[in-house]
């Protein structure tokens, strides 16, 4: 009988050896939101997330289709229904390229908003740096809204993180209001940002980049559909950029497409893509390859 008790005991030991801790598992390969945004270092990581938004929003297929490809600078004879219709301005709301354009931009704007909210609660050794980081974020946010207003016209202006319920209550603002928000952000940032960075920080937004963007915003706003006629404002800003002596044209136009000239003299603002994204973009630049790529994946 002793024997039996021993077995019974071992079995029962198994029964009670587990507890609720067994069910509380934390992610291994991901950090969770809880406990983040607490230090200067973490805010720096968050700011890199803000910058990362540029990679998807500026290099995706939609960014080409809805900006340059629609212009008369380029021509694309795509056999894909979705590409074809965007380029010819007869896309339907179901077009699968439109949604990512909208969602990537707003997801990136959310990163800006949560950063701007959370940075207020963290104390920095150098307040100047804190202000600079906020200004960088605002320029990026302005760029995203500038894309949105050009793609979709008036869009909701969101400047803080929203709950799901709050997000359901927002409506579209007018094109005018969106431009006003863009201009406000850019003006504020241009005043705060430094004109240059040390070599390891190249790729962050400078005051000249902010001014150049603001100039472009005024130029665009002065045309269709607002026709605001703010050409003079654009001229002042852009002349300041030109006369800064920081930039000059490459000897020939095609040099822009040479990877060796990345962040070269002609770049007012440019960013290096991380490796895998870069590959995709290089493929896109070669037009023949664009067709190959799409047929490969969709045939």
């Amino acid at each position: 009988m002793k024997f039996i008790y021993k077995y019974a005991f071992i079995s029962l030991a198994f029964l009670f050896s587990c507890s609720e801790d067994f069910l509380n598992l934390a992610p291994i390969s991901n950090r969770s939101v809880e406990g983040f945004y607490n230090s200067e270092q973490e805010l720096n990581q968050a700011l890199m997330g803000v910058y990362d938004g540029l990679q998807s929003t500026q290099t995706s297929v939609y960014a080409m289709l809805m900006k340059e490809q629609r212009s008369d600078n380029t021509f694309q004879q795509s056999l894909l229904y979705n590409f074809h219709s965007i380029i010819h301005f007869n896309e339907s709301p179901e077009n699968t390229q439109l949604y990512p354009a909208w969602s990537d931009l707003f997801e990136s704007i959310y990163r800006c908003n949560i950063f701007l909210e959370k940075i207020e609660g963290v104390s920095f050794e150098d307040d100047q740096l804190k202000e600079q980081m906020k200004a960088e974020t605002k320029v990026i946010r302005a760029l995203f809204y500038f894309d949105l207003v050009r793609y979709f016209g008036g869009v909701p202006i969101v400047t803080k993180p929203l709950s799901i319920t709050e997000s359901l209550q927002y409506e579209r603002n007018s094109i005018d209001e969106v431009y006003a928000a863009i201009i406000a952000d850019l003006e504020e940032a241009a005043a705060t940002l430094p004109q240059t960075y040390s070599s390891q920080d190249v790729g962050r937004i400078t005051s000249l980049a902010a001014k150049a963007l603001l100039g472009k915003v005024y130029l665009t706003k002065s045309g269709y559909p607002l026709n605001s006629g703010e050409w003079e404002k654009a001229k002042v800003l852009l002349e300041e950029v030109i006369n800064s002596g920081q930039f000059e044209f490459f000897p020939q136009y095609s040099d822009v497409f040479n990877i060796a000239n990345d962040n070269g003299k002609q770049y007012v603002f440019g960013f290096n893509l991380i490796q895998t994204l870069k590959e995709k973009v290089i493929l896109f630049l070669e037009f023949r390859r664009l067709i190959i790529l799409t047929e490969m994946t969709l045939f």
């Binding site: 973490e42 803000v50 990362d52 990163r111 070599s199 190249v202 790729g203």
Partner: peptide
């Protein structure tokens, strides 16, 4: 959500979102 900073080809800086 990493980003590249720095001169030339630059170097990868860790980001989180």
């Amino acid at each position: 959500t990493n980003y590249v900073l720095g001169d030339g080809t630059g170097s990868l800086v860790g980001g989180l979102s």
